[in-house]
Every structure is written in structure tokens, then in C-alpha cells.
């Protein structure tokens, strides 16, 4: 018995060197996470929820590179969607100082210089901010594998464990729409830029985390119009909600 409880306690035990803020943000994140809080069967309940009733936040990261073992997040863009509306004042961009120096080819992509990232938050504060901003919300990302991998790597490094995530991926929504319209699906046509172009959304600068987060949020608003759904309501499951337990 004792051993069993100890095991449980160990599993719940997080890095003891965390600051009080991070710890508090983490606890609140867990407590209010849409797919884990309160009673059983939340996952099913969440996927039955209406999109309009769900607090959403589009998220995009810029990283030092695409190698998940040693590359790091250097900036995060957050764009909340409330009641199908985006308020620019609620959007946020944060810069994180990575542990390694930036390589020049990457600076060319994301446009952030050493000086800018050096003035950024520490990785722990970055994670803490992520937890604070996304708590209780379903994340919207375009091709979410990158965001998921990098935030989980950061979480494991800082917290000692991954965090639960509920995600709607506009990349997957686009696939659904294309299948529904019997359009060919190519990886190129599913890029954020090309999808926006196809729908008639304006061109935004790519590779800035905030710009991409807003782009993704707007894409989701537009995609709702394209989903050929029988009634006016859209449920999260129809958007291919993905739940990652911790």
C-alpha cells in the first residue's frame, strides 16, 4: 500500500526548484484544463462542446531549429478567440532566451536577433506564461506537432513531466474540408500561407509567432464557413479535437 502511494506521490512530484509563480500557474493549469478538470469522461464531454462556447487560443512558436532533441523555443504568439472574435488587445507575443546561441540561418527565418532573444524571458518563465495564458482553453495550432513537441520538451525539462493539451489543428480541419469537397490533398496546399490564400484571407508575414498565431485564428474562423455542416452549430469533435493526457 505504502509503496503504491509513494509511487503516486512520485509521479505527481514536480521539480522542486520551481519558482512559486510557475508552480502556481502549473497547478491552476491542471485544475482548469478543459479535458482533465472535474468529473470523469471530460474528454467525451469536451468534444461534444460547441465551438462558439469554448474558449480557444491560437498558439504559434518560433524555434532555433526543427531538431526536437536540442532545438528550443525562442518566441511564442498567443491569439485568444472568444465567441468567434479576435481582440487584438488580447494577443500577446513573448520572446524566450534559449540556452544556446542563435544560428544565422535561423535568424533569417524568424527575424529575431541575439539582442532581442537575450532580452527575453528565461525558459521557465516562458513556460509559466504559456500555462497562464492557455489555462482552461483549447489550443488552436496549424500543424500542431511542432508546438506540441516543443512545449512538452520544455515542460519535461522545467516541470519534470509533460502537460495535458487539448488541440484543434487547422491543418487537420483543412484536410477534412478538402476531403469533403473532393479536392486533392497535397502537403503544399495545406501550408498556412496557401490555405489562407485559397480562402481569400490577406497575406500576412510568415514566421513571426504572433502573426502566425493570428493567421491561424483567422483561418479557423474562415474554415467554419467552409465546413459543410448540417446545422449552424459546430462541435469540437467535428473539428477533430485531439487530447493529450499528461
Amino acid at each position: 500500500m505504502n509503496l503504491f502511494f509513494k509511487k503516486i506521490r512520485n509521479r505527481n512530484k514536480i521539480n522542486e526548484n520551481l519558482s512559486a509563480t510557475t508552480r502556481s500557474n502549473y497547478e491552476q493549469y491542471l485544475a482548469s484544463h478543459p479535458a482533465t478538470c472535474n468529473a470523469n469522461n471530460h474528454e467525451e464531454k469536451l468534444s461534444e462542446k460547441e465551438l462558439g462556447d469554448t474558449p480557444l487560443i491560437a498558439v504559434d512558436f518560433e524555434t532555433t531549429g526543427l531538431n526536437e532533441t536540442y532545438d528550443e523555443i525562442i518566441s511564442m504568439g498567443f491569439c485568444p478567440i472568444v465567441d468567434n472574435k479576435i481582440r487584438l488587445a488580447d494577443c500577446l507575443h513573448i520572446v524566450i532566451k534559449p540556452e544556446q546561441a542563435l544560428s544565422s540561418e535561423n535568424v533569417a527565418i524568424h527575424g529575431l536577433t541575439d539582442d532581442q532573444v537575450n532580452a527575453g524571458l528565461s525558459p521557465e518563465l516562458g513556460l509559466s506564461k504559456f500555462l497562464e495564458l492557455t489555462k482552461g482553453k483549447v489550443i488552436v495550432a496549424h500543424y500542431h506537432q511542432i508546438e506540441r513537441t516543443f512545449i512538452q520538451n520544455l515542460a519535461k525539462k522545467i516541470l519534470g513531466r509533460p502537460i495535458p493539451l487539448s488541440i484543434i489543428d487547422t491543418f487537420e480541419v483543412a484536410k477534412t474540408i478538402k476531403r469533403q469537397n473532393q479536392q486533392p490533398i497535397t502537403s503544399n496546399s495545406l501550408r498556412l500561407f496557401n490555405l489562407r490564400n485559397e480562402i481569400g484571407l490577406p497575406h500576412y508575414k510568415a514566421h513571426n509567432a504572433l502573426e502566425d498565431a493570428i493567421s491561424t485564428a483567422e483561418l479557423l474562423l474562415a474554415q467554419q464557413a467552409l465546413l459543410d455542416l448540417p446545422n449552424e452549430k459546430i462541435f469540437l469533435k467535428q473539428l477533430g479535437l485531439i487530447n493529450y493526457k499528461k
Binding site: K85, I86, R87, L88, L221, A222, Q224
Partner: peptide
């Protein structure tokens, strides 16, 4: 002004 805006989308 920019900070006060809301972005909304209307279907055809």
C-alpha cells in the same frame, strides 16, 4: 486604434 480592434469573419 489598432489595439481596440476586433477581427470578425462573415460567411458569404
Amino acid at each position: 486604434l489598432a489595439l481596440s480592434i476586433e477581427i470578425v469573419y462573415f460567411k458569404r
